[in-house]
């Protein structure tokens, strides 16, 4: 038993929490686990296949998880930023949570891949990671694995897209978004998509066509990505969840880069630092408005 399993058992048996949300071996790769019995914490694992961001289960929309009671959640550094985001936006109270941080050596793109990290299998989100050792947590467990292999796939692709003409970019995105089936998995796995009534579900008036036509697909992604500006923590769950392999991480990453450039802000792991959308500064850039 690792210190992670022992800690989970202790938190449950002492009654500090009612459920520990972590990772377990599933029929097709690693998957989220909800442990309520202190005798059953030995199934919890953590390795480079634990790609999912479990902060999503703290989202108040997950009413079927909330009924279980107080939660301890296992987070990688990147995931801890999402927990901080939920607290920053008053969706979750800090005191209602026990945060178990795990030191991380990078993760693969899909939970059913082999654990060995290569430049091809490592997730894009691990590039330039600044939180392999989470700071925003109550407990920090497991030894720090070696750093993941370097990948520049996504930043190279963004650079390539920026060099294109507007028409070429439109052709690229028309093809990519043209595959969208509007299942909204990108929204559902997003820890920061907290709206009880999503604008995509509104029909009086209907802002976004529900039909899976290019117009509706583009409007949906533009709306989603803009709504995440300055909030997205780049966990890339949207891209992982997409059943049609649409590279959604390119959009969220680029918007995050724009926010950083214009507002000197990166969605980080301190819930007390206000996001650009959440505060007013007299020196806020406004050139793009006027």
């Amino acid at each position: 038993m690792s210190e992670m399993n022992e800690l989970a058992a202790k938190l449950l048996s002492e009654g500090t929490v009612k459920v520990v949300i972590g990772y377990e071996e599933g029929p097709a790769g690693v998957r989220p686990a909800f442990i309520t019995d202190p005798a059953k914490t030995d199934t919890l694992i953590f390795d480079s296949r634990c790609v999912q961001n479990l902060a999503v289960y703290l989202n108040p929309r997950r009413s079927h998880v909330a009924v279980l009671g107080k939660v301890a959640v296992i987070v990688k550094g990147c995931d801890s930023k999402a927990v901080a985001g939920l607290i920053r936006e008053y969706q979750v109270k800090r005191e209602d949570l026990v945060i178990i941080g795990v030191r991380c050596g990078g993760v693969v793109r899909r939970a059913d891949m082999a654990a060995e990290l290569t430049a091809d299998t490592v997730s894009d989100k691990c590039q330039d990671c600044d939180v392999r050792e989470p700071k925003f947590c109550d407990h920090l467990v497991l030894p720090l694995p070696p750093a993941p292999p370097m990948t520049t796939k996504r930043s190279d692709k963004i650079a390539e897209l920026l060099k294109m003409t507007a028409d070429e970019r439109w052709a690229f995105w028309s093809e990519q978004l043209g595959r969208c089936i509007r299942c909204h998995a990108c929204r559902e796995v997003c820890p920061l998509c907290t709206c009880v009534q999503c604008i995509a579900d509104k029909n009086r008036p209907q802002w976004i066509p529900t039909s899976a036509t290019l117009q509706g697909d583009v409007m949906w992604q533009m709306t989603r990505v803009l709504h995440l500006a300055g909030r997205c923590v780049d966990c890339q769950e949207c891209e992982r969840a997409c059943p049609l392999d649409i590279p959604l991480g390119l959009l969220t990453k680029y918007v995050a880069q724009m926010v950083e450039k214009r507002f000197d802000y990166k969605a980080g792991d301190d819930p007390n630092v206000a996001a650009p959308m959440g505060e007013y500064r007299t020196d806020d850039e406004e050139g793009f408005i006027l």
């Binding site: 989220p32 686990a33 079927h64 509007r182 299942c183 909204h184 998995a185 559902e188 796995v189 059943p243």
Partner: peptide, 16 residues
């Protein structure tokens, strides 16, 4: 009661 805890409630399974 516990079956669907990890389910995100997207429509991916139904659409494919």
């Amino acid at each position: 009661d516990t079956l669907a805890l990890r389910c995100h409630g997207c429509g991916a399974c139904t659409f494919v």
